[in-house]
Deep mutational scan, measured.
Amino acid sequence: DETGKFLVLSLYDYQEKSPREVTMKKGDILTLLNSTNKDWWKVEVNGRQGFVPAAYVKFL
């Protein structure tokens, strides 16, 4: 199980638009929880879990 094993870097600021999403700032290091959807990845940032656009992050 690779859940929570990968870190990704936020390339852009992102403001959550729904309760299922999370806000991140450019340069944030996020824990990747799920990347099965090619468009939206589930991450943990600042103690919160939610989705961010996959195009806004990259693997470290």
Rank of each mutant, 00 (worst) to 15 (best):
V45D: 02
M24V: 10
T36S: 15
N46Y: 08
G47R: 04
T3N: 13
N34E: 14
F59I: 15
T23G: 09
N34T: 07
P53N: 03
K26Q: 10
D28M: 13
V43G: 00
W41Q: 00
A55P: 08
D28G: 03
D13A: 06
A54E: 02
T31Q: 12
A54P: 03
D1C: 15
K42R: 10
Y56M: 12
V45K: 11
W41A: 04
Y14A: 02
G4C: 15
Y12F: 13
T36A: 12
D1Q: 14
V57T: 03
G4H: 13
T31P: 08
G4Y: 12
L9R: 08
E21L: 05
Y14F: 08
V52Y: 01
S10Y: 06
A55F: 09
S18Y: 07
F6Y: 14
V22K: 01
L32T: 01
S18W: 06
V52A: 02
E2N: 14
F51S: 02
L33A: 02
L11D: 03
K5T: 13
S35A: 14
A54F: 02
V8Y: 09
S35E: 06
L7M: 11
A54L: 02
K42F: 15
D1G: 14
K25M: 09
V45F: 13
V43P: 00
L32Q: 00
D13Y: 05
F6S: 12
N34Y: 06
P53M: 04
R48N: 07
D1H: 15
N46E: 10
N37M: 08
E16H: 08
K26S: 07
L30E: 00
L32C: 11
L30F: 05
K38A: 12
V43Q: 00
D1P: 14
W41M: 04
E44L: 07
Y12M: 13
L32Y: 03
K42E: 15
G50C: 03
T3L: 13
G50P: 00
Y12T: 10
V22L: 14
P53S: 03
F59Y: 11
Y14E: 02
K26R: 11
L33C: 08
T31K: 12
R20P: 05
R48S: 06
W40E: 03
F59N: 08
K26F: 05
D39L: 12
L30G: 08
T3R: 09
K58W: 09
S18D: 12
A54G: 03
L7V: 09
W40I: 02
N37R: 08
W41N: 00
D28C: 08
E44A: 09
T36K: 12
N46W: 05
K25F: 10
T36Y: 09
E16W: 05
M24Y: 02
G4E: 12
G4Q: 14
I29K: 05
K58L: 12
S18H: 12
R48D: 04
D28S: 07
P19I: 10
V57W: 01
K5I: 12
Y14W: 10
A54R: 10
G47Y: 04
K5F: 12
N46M: 08
V22H: 02
F51Q: 02
L33W: 04
G47L: 04
T23S: 15
A55N: 12
L60E: 07
Y12K: 14
N46G: 12
Y14V: 02
Q49N: 07
F51D: 03
D39M: 12
K5W: 11
V45M: 11
R48V: 09
F51R: 02
Y14Q: 01
S10H: 04
F6D: 10
P53R: 05
V52G: 00
N34M: 07
G27K: 02
P53W: 04
P53Y: 03
P19K: 10
A54Y: 02
S18T: 12
R48Y: 06
L7N: 06
Y12D: 07
K58A: 15
Y14K: 01
D1R: 03
R20W: 15
T31S: 08
F51L: 09
K42V: 13
L30Y: 08
L32F: 05
G50Q: 01
K42I: 13
L30Q: 01
E2L: 14
V45A: 11
S10P: 03
L11N: 03
R48K: 12
W41C: 05
D13S: 08
D28V: 05
F6N: 11
E16Q: 13
T36V: 10
T23Q: 04
K17W: 03
L60I: 14
L60V: 11
T31G: 05
L11K: 07
G4L: 11
K42W: 15
N46S: 08
D39P: 02
K25N: 09
V22G: 01
K25G: 04
R48E: 06
T23V: 04
D39K: 13
Q15A: 12
Q15D: 15
M24H: 01
L60R: 03
V43F: 01
G47W: 02
M24D: 01
N37S: 10
V52M: 03
I29M: 07
Q49A: 11
D13P: 05
L7W: 11
L60Q: 07
Y56P: 00
D28R: 03
N37Q: 08
I29P: 01
A54T: 05
R20F: 14
F6C: 15
